[in-house]
């Protein structure tokens, strides 16, 4: 419940990407005020202003860190964007620490009525901002290139937290064993790789279905999609496919999904990849 709230599901909107506007904007304004203060002699009004903006930026950054950690923990460990997310996290923690030190140096100095920000505090802020620009770029890539958190609020069940690797090599009938059926409740999905085929295995109204993981529009992750009747909806652009046949039922996708044969035997899910 708390996780769903921190991920912004009740708002239909992820919270981390909304909150991070504030540290980015306020830290950037801090640096601009610092630089203006170095270039123009206006007493210490600009330095005092920068102290305000860095203080509020830090408060916002701490909130953003909490929300970001929740989002980070939810990315599947073998997802291509997990590495980017980890770098993004380390960089942001580093930048926040730099701004934290910068704030502390200022707070000591600015108690004196005529004082201005110490040069070290300014340099730390500039370095922190450089890190944030790069890290923000990575954060944007995670959304715009890898679609993290896109359409996530529509999903009613947890998304798969790992990939199941299976092979039909030692199987007489070509069926590969995936997992115990208890691992899957209704409207839940598994993310599996069977003999190189990457697929979603879904349970819907008591039936099991297996189909290709990637949407045929821009290749969004169907194992993170939402079910509507017999359809799976891609989290990215809302393409819908009938899970029974793989047929497109709503665009923008135009090409049908590949589907796979599933069977249930002695409490285990089996999938067969028919290769021509």
């Amino acid at each position: 419940m708390i996780k769903a709230f921190l991920q912004g599901k009740p708002f239909g909107y992820p919270l981390h990407p909304a909150v991070i506007h504030f540290p980015i904007g306020l830290f950037f304004l801090t640096v601009l005020l610092d630089v203006a203060n170095l270039l123009i002699d206006t007493g210490n009004v600009l330095a005092q202003s920068a102290f305000y903006t860095v203080s509020f930026g830090l408060i916002a950054a701490l909130i953003a860190i909490l929300l970001g950690l929740v989002d980070w923990s939810d990315i599947r460990a073998d997802h291509p964007a997990k590495y980017t997310a980890t770098i993004h996290m380390i960089l942001n923690l580093t930048a926040t620490a730099l701004f934290g030190i910068s704030w502390w140096l200022r707070s000591v100095e600015l108690g004196k009525p005529t004082a201005t920000a110490p040069l070290l505090a300014v340099l730390l802020a500039i370095a922190g901002m450089g890190i944030i620009f790069y890290s923000g770029y990575l954060g944007g890539s995670m959304v715009y290139d890898d679609g993290l958190a896109v359409g996530r609020h529509r999903r009613r069940t947890d998304t798969p937290d790992h990939t199941i690797h299976a092979s039909s090599k030692d199987s007489p009938d070509g069926f590969a064993r995936i997992a115990p059926v208890d691992a899957l409740r209704s409207e839940e999905t598994l993310h599996a790789e069977v003999d190189g085929h990457v697929m979603t295995i879904a349970k819907l109204n008591g039936e099991l279905y297996a189909f290709q993981e990637f949407c045929t529009h821009r290749f969004g992750p169907l194992s993170e999609g939402q079910f509507q009747d017999h359809n799976i909806m891609c989290p990215w652009h809302g393409s819908c496919f009938d899970v029974r046949t793989g047929k497109v039922t709503q665009g923008p996708a135009k090409v049908d999904l590949k589907t796979y044969e599933v069977k249930l035997e002695s409490g285990q899910i089996f999938v067969r990849v028919i290769t021509k």
Binding site: P80, E193, G196, H197, V198, M199, Q212, E213, F214, T216, F219, G246, V255, D256, L257, K258, V273
Partner: peptide, 8 residues
């Protein structure tokens, strides 16, 4: 990535 995963 999708091609490597044998997707349509």
């Amino acid at each position: 990535i999708a091609q490597a995963g044998h997707a349509n």
